[in-house]
Structures are given as C-alpha cells and as structure tokens.
Simulated assay, not measured.
Amino acid sequence: MKTAWVFPGQGSQVLGMGMDLRAIDLAQKTFDRAGEILGWSVIDICQNDEVKLANTRYTQPCLYVIESILVDLLKQRGLMPSVVAGHSLGEYVALSAAGVFDFETGLQLVKHRAELMALASDGGMTALIGFDRSQLADAIAATEGVVIANDNSTAQVVISGTVAGIATVVSQIKVKRAIPLNVSGAFHSPLMATAATEFGKLLAPVTFHDACVPVLSNVAPIATTDGHKLKAHLTSQITGAVRWREISLQLPELGIERAIEVGPGKVLGGLIKRTCEGIVVVQVSTRSDLESLDS
C-alpha cells in the first residue's frame, strides 16, 4: 500500500504529548540528545508546563523532537513512506525523515527558526472557515498587507498580515467563522521578511542531501527528491504560504492509498479526508498507536 507520512505543525501540541514514549530506549536517547542541543528539557515542558508549550520558542522544538522519535520508531518496525510532507514546522520533520539532513541538524534549524519567529511582533493571523474563495481573493487583492498564509482546504484558510488589513478583509466577505489565532506575528507573510533573512544566513551553509523518498514542500507542492530544490523551498517557507490543499490533492495523483499523520492531533488527517476521497487516514501519536499499526 502506497503510504504518505504527514507531519503537523504548531497548533497541534498538547500537554503530555510523547510522554508514553519515554520507556523506549531509542526515545529516551533522543530526548537526552535534544536536551544537549536545546539547553532545556523537552520532557519537562511537555509533561508539566502548558504555558511554555504554547510559546513558539518551545512549541516548535518539542513537536520536532516528538515527531522525529515517532519516525524512528516507525522505521524501526521496517516501515517507510512513499512520500512525505509536513505543515509549516512539520516540513522539517518530513525532510529529516527523508534523509535530507539528520536529526541534530534539523533540531538546530528548528531552534533558531522558533527563536526568530518568537521575536516577531508585527501583525497577526486569523483562520477563516466557510467562505467564498473568489470573494476572499478579491478582498485580499484590494487590501494592502494581507495574504493567505495557510491554504488548508476549500473551506478553511488562514490569512496573515497587518491587524488593520485582516480586519478589512474580514469585514468585506461573508464567512461562517473568523478565528483570530494566538500568535506573536504574521507568520508565512511578507511581514516575516526580517526573520526570513536572518534564518537564510543560518540555512545557507547547511548541506541538503537528495531525499530518499519524494517530498511535497509547503511553497511548491510538487514531489521532488532534489536536495537543492528542497533547500530553496525551505528558504522561502517563513514568508511563503503553506499550500496544504494542493499537497492533499497531489496524494491521489501519486497513487497514495493511506496517509499516516505522525504527531499529535488529527488536523492534517481531517483536511486530507475532506479534500481527497478514498485515502485511508491513520493517526500515530502514541505508543499504543504504533502497536496498533503493527497488528
């Protein structure tokens, strides 16, 4: 069965995530190695500190570490994907899972990315559910400083930009729900240009190997194994849109029959179900999920 592994990003975190994995030697070694790189304990935060877990600076590394452990445990069972994709932060796990860079390199990148994004203070983001896509496109085209940051499905997007610009767009369209997100800045928009420039300097010397399985990138959802292309795509990701709807639509085109959401939450699986008919969606976020997958 051709299978995609998909990795959730910020917003899927939950207190207690990954804690049932600590009894597994491979997982504990990864938690220990992460602590050496980060200078703080992923276990302590995921187990005890809901406030820190909601802080971008900590959220992103915690998700990366736990999702990476799940990848290693899946591979330990002899499983490999036919294609990988990750939503925003999740793309780093996808690249690591595909062998583009190793766990340590990815965690260093995620650590710096999270710190830069945590410093962002301009603008905001709002999720829109139930809207007319052409009406939204017209409103954004007529409003300065607003873009679609996450194109998740036909019925759900996230817009990002200036606070005034977002308010203008929302006032001009009919929308079932408009939900302001609790984020520090306008992620995946041109307002993140400074953070993107600084991150680009850190990313430049990092070697990206060709992937061992195709990767669907956020900003260019066409499957590729080319390390140079994947690096260019990641360089654009902080200011570029997450084109998840298009990623989902690519799965049946690639012959994918099953999608495994590797990490906490069921957001990506739900989006894939609503976008693609006939793809079986499986959740792997706990030790029990891993054991069920084996049976």
Rank of each mutant, 00 (worst) to 15 (best):
G265T: 04
A94T: 01
F101N: 04
G86T: 07
I256W: 09
L251Y: 07
T154W: 14
A97P: 07
A204Q: 12
M19H: 00
G9M: 05
A195E: 13
S88R: 10
A232I: 03
A186F: 01
T194A: 14
A142G: 02
R258V: 06
K2G: 13
K174A: 12
L53A: 02
E115C: 01
V284D: 02
S285V: 06
S134A: 09
M192K: 02
G255N: 13
Q13C: 01
R243F: 11
L293A: 00
I66W: 08
M125Y: 07
T197L: 15
A223H: 15
S160R: 07
K229P: 10
T197V: 15
R274S: 15
T30C: 13
M192I: 11
V100N: 08
W40G: 04
I279H: 07
D44G: 05
D32G: 03
A164K: 09
D44N: 13
A120R: 00
P221C: 13
A195I: 00
V51G: 11
V282R: 13
G130W: 13
V262F: 03
A204K: 06
R22V: 15
S160Q: 09
F101W: 10
V65E: 04
V183N: 11
L21S: 06
V42I: 10
N152V: 13
G18T: 11
L26K: 10
N182L: 14
A204M: 05
V213F: 08
A118M: 02
L70D: 08
L293R: 05
F208P: 11
G18S: 14
G269I: 10
R57K: 09
N55L: 02
S96C: 08
I148M: 08
L203R: 04
L15F: 06
T207Y: 04
G18F: 06
I247D: 07
H209S: 15
L95E: 06
L109G: 10
M19D: 05
N55R: 11
G227W: 04
G200S: 14
Y64L: 04
H233W: 01
L53H: 00
T197F: 11
A118P: 02
V267M: 01
A204W: 03
M192P: 00
L230A: 08
R287K: 14
V51C: 13
V146K: 12
G106K: 00
L21C: 05
N55W: 04
A137Y: 05
L53W: 04
